[in-house]
């Protein structure tokens, strides 16, 4: 029992931190620019594929540095050439633009790298057991993901709280027009934030692409859950994104590990109930639904999210 709890805890935190790596960029973009970037997970996928190709030449460490920069620059280009022009036509146009971008990037990835998964592997230097617990191994690469996610949180936090650029970004979260009226180039700040946010998604792709599988469906697998993190955490709140990511990581991991039904629980209390009724469904099957249920509930009862300061 303890073994199961400890490993669910470790895996939940790991999944949560991976979600945070992906969601931190989106929460900045969403919070500051009001852009519901449907294509955010596509940049995550691009990060993984770029890392695969670069690692063939420069190895994993080269890919870790270069792939997020390439994805960030691509994000800057898309914001400068596309989003900035679409912005004039309102949020619906922006939303449709990023929606279209999802499919464009998806098809481009298939054209360049093909339909099948690519052989993007964990680097040899990190392919060992970090420690063993209750007879099970904890791989070093998982520890590396945790370390990178924490380092990323600290780096973004310091950027936002300790630098002038960060202060301008935080001010733009509440009143971007006023930031412009004080002489700051808001369109350029938007481009920077979009590039930074997509670059972070790219970095998450570099880290997760070899931990999971790098294949064309990876963006669709992560896309919806990232929005849950942003809504649950609160618009523009980095701390909120971290807390929400951990909650979702832990809730889904623990739910998957629950190998019993409500009928089983009632039976242990002496109340007999048919296993073929709704109450007999294994609780682990509700796991994938829980994050979305949380999002629906938070939108009803606390629209500004756990730590957000505004609702829209």
């Amino acid at each position: 029992m303890i073994e199961s709890v400890v490993f669910s805890l470790l895996n939940g935190v790991l999944y949560g931190m991976l979600l945070f790596m992906l969601a931190s960029g989106l929460t900045l973009i969403f919070g500051m620019m009001g852009v519901l970037n449907f294509a955010h997970a596509s940049f995550y996928m691009l990060g993984a594929y770029c890392a695969y190709s670069i690692s063939q030449v420069l190895g994993f460490w080269g890919a870790l540095v270069i792939a997020p920069i390439i994805v960030g620059l691509l994000g800057a280009l898309i914001e400068r050439v596309g989003l900035r022009n679409v912005h004039k036509h309102g949020h619906v146009a922006e939303l449709l633009f990023t929606f279209g971008l999802v499919y464009v990037i998806d098809e481009l990835v298939i054209l360049v790298w093909g339909q099948l998964p690519v052989d993007y592997r964990i680097p040899e230097a990190l392919d060992f057991t970090l420690f063993s617990l209750y007879g099970s191994d904890f791989p070093a690469y998982r520890g590396f993901i945790l370390f990178m996610a924490v380092a990323m949180f600290v780096a973004i936090y310091l950027l936002l709280v300790r630098t002038r650029v960060g202060m301008i970004i935080r001010a733009s979260l509440s009143h971007p027009d006023m930031v412009g009226a004080l002489g700051h180039n808001v369109p350029r700040i938007f481009t920077f934030v979009f590039a930074f946010g997509t670059g972070l998604a790219g970095l998450a792709g570099v880290m997760a692409g070899n931990y999971f599988i790098t294949e064309p469906g990876m963006a669709f697998a992560m896309g919806p859950i990232v929005f849950v993190v942003v809504v649950l955490g609160g618009l523009g709140s980095l701390g909120g994104a971290l807390v929400a990511s951990l909650i979702i990581g832990l809730v889904t991991t623990f739910a998957v590990g629950m190998n019993y039904s409500i009928a089983d629980m009632l039976a242990s209390a002496g109340i007999a109930f048919g296993q073929d009724s709704v109450l007999g469904i294994n609780l682990s099957r509700f796991g994938p639904m829980l994050p979305y249920l949380l999002m629906v509930l938070i939108l009803i009862f606390r629209p500004r999210g756990l730590m957000g300061s505004r609702e829209s």
Binding site: A171, S174, H175, G180, A181, G183
Partner: peptide, 28 residues
């Protein structure tokens, strides 16, 4: 654009003040 006009030397104090809520007085 607004930021270029501000850089030319025109300041604007809006009716609804628009202070930045997440920033301290000094940061504002």
């Amino acid at each position: 654009s607004a930021h270029r006009i501000a850089r030319k030397g025109i300041g604007y104090v809006p009716e609804d003040r628009l202070t930045f809520s997440g920033l301290s007085t000094r940061e504002n």
